[in-house]
């Protein structure tokens, strides 16, 4: 554990050194994702100017949803996205050898070697959106509710991370996974725009169980507005547990299958 913490510290230090060399675009991810969520807010403001509820949620709850998705996405961008995203290229080029031969967990190093502090303002922006949403929804803020919300946000960040690893681990088995990543971004885009409360039937099965992007921001918001039923809690915990297992199996299987360059 202590060794891993030292490795993480070193990775963060190296990353800062690297970012200081390439200052252009330091805040790029913040502006890109920030604009995306501002567009989302504008879209739903326009829709709510014409309707009162969407899937049982009022404007304030929808703002909370957008803010929460933005927060999960921001944590992803700051901590692990750029590292995880480079996995397919490293498998393809054989660069993965360098990670496997080092005396540190390859996944730990891959996940944390490209942290991106430029996206930190995105976390602040998300928090502002969440506070605005809470004010709009006239929420009564209590410590217990906030702690439960934070618990779900952390859990959903883990789920988000696992989904990214799953999609990228496929590179161990296939030559090109560009289309899988396209599928991932299409699902993300859809669930970023639609709260889980609007899914029904087969769509609910797909986005709650198979590609569980539909629960990522929905469950934390439900916990915040007091709509979290025991069934929701059990379902969310089960999904995170199952996907943790799938991620471990796929990653370990992938490493075993890896044949260095050209695998």
């Amino acid at each position: 554990m202590r060794k891993n913490i030292n490795v993480i510290k070193e990775l963060v230090r190296l990353r800062f050194q690297h970012l200081m060399m390439f200052r252009i675009g330091f805040f790029g991810p913040f502006f890109v994702d920030g604009s995306l969520f501002v567009v989302q807010l504008m879209v739903f403001s326009a829709v709510y100017a014409n309707v009162e509820r969407i899937g049982g949620w009022e404007h304030g709850q929808m703002i909370l949803y957008i803010g929460t998705f933005s927060l999960i996405n921001a944590i992803n961008m700051v901590v692990y996205f750029f590292g995880v995203n480079s996995i397919p290229a490293k498998i393809k080029s054989g660069e993965m050898d360098l990670y496997l031969t080092k005396p540190v967990s390859p996944l730990l190093r891959l996940s944390l070697e490209h942290i991106n502090p430029g996206s930190l303002p995105l976390i602040l922006m998300s928090l502002v959106i969440i506070v605005y949403g809470a004010w709009e929804a006239e929420l009564r803020i209590e410590t217990g509710i906030v702690l439960s919300y934070l618990f779900w946000v952390v859990l959903m960040c883990i789920l988000y991370y696992e989904m990214e690893i799953i999609f990228r681990s496929i590179s161990f088995f296939l030559i090109s996974t560009a289309k899988m990543e396209q599928l991932e971004s299409a699902c993300l885009e859809l669930c970023m725009q639609l709260p889980g409360t609007v899914f029904y039937g087969v769509y609910k099965v797909v986005f709650y169980c198979i590609l569980p992007y539909g629960i990522m921001a929905t469950v934390p918001v439900k916990s915040l507005v007091g709509e979290c039923t025991p069934a929701t809690v059990l379902h969310a915990l089960a999904v995170v547990g199952i996907f943790t297992g799938i991620t471990c199996v796929l990653w370990r299987g992938g490493i075993r299958c890896y044949n260095s360059a050209s695998s």
Binding site: V47, V51, R53, I54, G55, A186, E189, L190, Q193, L194, V198, F199, Y203
Partner: peptide, 18 residues
């Protein structure tokens, strides 16, 4: 289909009331 599915799910729920 992404854009159509988005529209279908969103507006189906909304038009259920209006």
């Amino acid at each position: 289909v992404g854009r159509i599915l988005f529209a279908y799910l969103l507006w189906k729920v909304i038009f259920a009331e209006k």
